[in-house]
Design a protein around this nucleic acid. Structure first.
Lengths: 119, 119
DNA sequence: CGCGCAAACAACCATAGGGTTGTACAAGCT
DNA sequence: AGCTTGTACAACCCTATGGTTGTTTGCGCG
């Protein structure tokens, strides 16, 4: 409905889709072409293309125009916006619940040892 | 399209709306009734009610059934899921870009001093 | 008891989102 | 030159979303 959507909304709604999150995960391990990305997903190349466009619009990825194959690379910058927003507001709850540090510490600890146990 | 949407998607898509984020911000400062929440938003109470239902479905808020007024309270638990996912994956980029700690440190620092300068 | 208010429910509308098929186009191979 | 491959574009379908108005319902109160 919003004609021009704000950055944050774009990022969050880009992340709100399992397929796109999976694409990001995949992309985190290196560039990939559209078809490579499409392969594991039981959906057409066109659908993946659309997802990529969404991710691009949210500036979560960028694409190097390489003639035939058009590999995608990640752009972490804009994830910061999202994580920043959450962190900033989590802080308020945390203050109330008095467990800011527990949580963030746990997060950081988790990052160190496990690569992604959840899910 | 997904009949039963996964937690993470629910959370992210709940956050993907400026109105709902504003509601959360507002709610972070304490409980509020539906009408109180609706007031600043130039939209009907019913619309806000819908937004609240979305937030509820994502377990970002819960509502204490208090007869006439039905105030909303926050539930930070599920924000952790979201922030956890991002953090976990940001780590991968960060590893590549070699600035994990800078960013997380900056985030934590930012949390301490500023309440929400950004935007 | 009846009024009034807070919130939800219901029906409806318009648009966006995720998917499909079918087609076009641009580069590389032979 | 002509086929094949990788990707994008277009049109279309269905469902979800964000909003509206209009109508309950449920409580508190004079």
């Amino acid at each position: 409905m919003a004609v021009v959507e704000d950055e944050l909304s774009l990022v969050f709604s880009a992340l709100a889709d399992p397929t796109r999150r999976a694409i990001l995960e995949r992309l985190a391990h290196g560039e990939a072409t559209v078809n490579q990305l499409a392969e594991p997903f039981a959906m057409t190349q066109q659908a993946v293309s659309k997802h990529l466009k969404v991710l691009e619009r949210a500036h979560l990825i960028s694409r190097t125009r390489t003639a035939q194959s058009r590999p995608c690379v990640l752009d972490a910058e804009h994830l910061d916006a999202a994580v920043g927003w959450i962190a900033r507001h989590r802080r308020i709850w945390a203050d109330r619940h008095d467990r800011l540090d527990e949580h963030l510490a746990a997060l950081r600890a988790g990052q160190r040892q496990d690569g992604g146990t959840t899910r």
